[in-house]
Amino acid sequence: MQDRLVTMFGGGGFLGRYVAQDLLKAGLRIRIAERNPGDAFFIKPMGGLGQTQFVSADITKPETLPRALEGADAAINFVGILKGDFRKVHADGARNAAEAAKAAGVRDFVQISSIGASPDAQSLYSRTKAMGEEAVRAALPDAIIMRPSVVFGPEDGFLNRFASLARMAPLMVPVMRPNTKFQPVYVADVADAVAKVLQNPAEYRGRTFELGGPQVMSMREINGFILKAIGKPDKPIFQVPDALGSTMARFGFLPGAPISWDQWLSLQSDNVVADDAEGFEALGITPRPLAAVADKWLVQYKSQGRFANQALDDA
């Protein structure tokens, strides 16, 4: 185990840093492959001397990948974007990484995808995620696919964004597509799943896992939870009419527009684990609910921060 080296494309990102920590604790060596490796240097103190390496690599540039995979036993592709050239990153980039891994003799490959990835999806994001899965499996049939729902954690761009909007909204909180359902999953639980399959890859090769938290929540329910967590449970939620929401999304390039058109298309479908999918249970992991962990960082959005309850008591 301690001799195994795992190359992590995009390993310095939101999910990657948690997976890196788990792999280092398990005694594996990791190689963080980033366009700007210096951005991930904060990971180095998580492991022992010589346990973490850094290399410059870009999955959209195949010529940069062989050096990142030299001597590796496994690889993970975390790279994803929310706007930009989805096909170049999600599809072509995933293909480049998998084909380079195959050429380097790396058998075990984990592709981080997303729930909703489908060639028939409305959003280009989800369609290209499906294309990436297909490309990876074409090069490496034993690749392991991980499809998380919306991932939350201290550094996320999901709960934090809504909490910030909820705090600033003067009278009410506008919510688009309030009935769309999600299965928010804690970043540390997803990291546990990725680390587990890499510690015993022979058991999981060729399988796809859909990773959702223990609660299915609508967009309205998620915003209601956030309002309660930040001490504003009485602030009303306003349902943005679809006609207005689609117009705002269509002009998403404008400053202040809440979502892009592709994100609007994603909101037309629920983002939950399929009934017949393998998930956390197959990995022996019990995911944590939102309420069990989110207060730890949502407290920063309270009017008096961590002293909010004390301030009320003193009053």
Rank of each mutant, 00 (worst) to 15 (best):
D3M: 10
D3R: 15
V6G: 09
G11A: 13
R17C: 04
R17F: 00
Y18F: 12
Q21A: 13
G27Q: 09
L28F: 13
R29K: 15
A33C: 04
R35L: 13
P37N: 07
F42C: 03
P45W: 03
M46E: 01
G50R: 07
Q53I: 00
F54P: 02
F54H: 05
V55P: 11
I59D: 02
K61S: 12
L69Y: 07
L69H: 10
A72W: 06
V79D: 04
L82M: 15
R87T: 01
K88H: 10
H90T: 01
A91L: 13
A97R: 08
A103Y: 11
R107I: 01
A117G: 10
A117W: 08
P119G: 03
A121D: 02
M131Q: 14
E134A: 15
A135C: 06
R137M: 09
A139H: 04
L140Y: 06
D142Q: 15
I144K: 07
V150F: 07
E155T: 08
A163Y: 03
S164D: 13
P178R: 10
V185H: 06
D189L: 11
D189R: 11
A191C: 04
A193L: 04
E210M: 14
L211H: 01
G212Y: 12
Q215W: 06
I222E: 01
I226N: 07
P236T: 03
P236V: 00
D242I: 01
L244T: 01
T247S: 12
A249Y: 00
A249G: 03
A249V: 00
F251Y: 14
G252D: 05
P255V: 04
A257Q: 04
P258W: 08
S260E: 04
W261Y: 12
L265S: 11
S266A: 13
Q268L: 14
E278C: 08
F280M: 09
G284T: 08
I285M: 07
P289L: 05
A292P: 06
W297L: 09
V299R: 11
S303Q: 14
N309A: 15
Q310T: 12
